[in-house]
């Protein structure tokens, strides 16, 4: 992919000066004059004044009635640039979660919307609490009515947990690899399983190939786990979140994998 030259220069013009970005952000929040921006940002008058001139010259802001206003296009530029910054922050904040992990099962759209995960919490096991990640997910499932999950492996407690959700008149939609499909089904109480399937309260999809992703959606909570690039599941880290954006992100990813299964 080639970066078009003028786009490249536009991006560079804003990205290379943190002062310009700060000023533009202030004007975006509220149109202001030079003195007002100095007061808000604590940047020196001469620096604000000279950068305002550059921003105006490059058609990012317009002076109307003694106040500078951001132009609509630059508002989108600023938002997308800040969005890219957030994606970089997410990569570095959860560095241990992503690093040397297999991301093949994430859809490209999930990757491009990674900023939806910005308020997530990284749960890591510790030597004194080696089941911390498992227990966090277990607690989410136990307190939920509606569960959607991608289980790439069968934990002995899963059938019981799903059974409990169904007993409490909840519903479960699961995607599992073919290799554990039968085992999972057989371990759920037969009567509960058959009744739930008949009432569409239990749906299980079998995926022909291995799944490289662990995902749960429990009422408003999501959790995400990954496999390492060596092929083993990383039981020591999960990302969890109750943020609606993260939940929607997980829901869309679940939908994407479900479509892959149906294909």
């Amino acid at each position: 992919m080639n970066i078009h030259n003028d786009i490249n220069n536009d991006i560079k013009f804003l990205a290379k000066s943190e002062i310009r970005l700060k000023i533009l952000n202030e004007i975006y929040k509220k149109p202001n004059n030079v003195r007002g921006i100095v007061k808000k940002t604590k940047i020196t008058y001469s620096s604000v004044s000279s950068n305002i001139g550059k921003l105006e010259k490059n058609n990012h802001i317009t002076k109307i009635d003694n106040k500078y206003h951001i132009n609509p296009m630059s508002e989108v530029y600023l938002k997308t640039l800040m969005d890219f910054k957030t994606s970089m922050d997410i990569v570095s904040d959860y560095e241990t979660f992503w690093n040397k992990h297999n991301l093949n099962q994430l859809s490209i759209n999930s990757v491009k919307r990674i900023t939806d995960l910005k308020d997530s919490q990284l749960i890591e096991t510790t030597p004194v609490d080696i089941y911390k990640t498992h227990n966090a997910i277990k607690n989410q499932i136990m307190s939920s009515k509606n569960v959607k999950a991608i289980f790439p492996y069968l934990h002995p407690e899963y059938p019981g947990l799903i059974e409990m959700v169904l007993k409490n008149e909840g519903s479960a939609e699961l995607i599992v690899p073919q290799s554990i499909f039968r085992e999972l089904i057989l371990r759920i109480d037969e009567k509960i399983r058959k009744d739930s399937m008949r009432n569409h309260k239990l749906q299980i999809y079998s995926y022909k190939e291995d799944l490289n992703l662990y995902l749960t959606l429990c009422d408003g909570n999501m959790s995400l786990g990954l496999f390492k690039t060596d092929g083993s599941f990383d039981q020591n880290r999960i990302l969890i979140s109750d943020n609606p954006d993260a939940y929607r992100w997980a829901k869309d990813l679940f939908q994407h994998v479900k479509c892959e299964v149906k294909k």
Partner: peptide, 20 residues
């Protein structure tokens, strides 16, 4: 994997700017 996440989002940024 970090480079992939970052580059995919950089492409998104460039395509956003291109679209506008």
């Amino acid at each position: 994997s970090n480079g992939f996440l970052l580059t995919a989002n950089m492409i998104k940024l460039i395509e956003n700017w291109y679209s506008i």
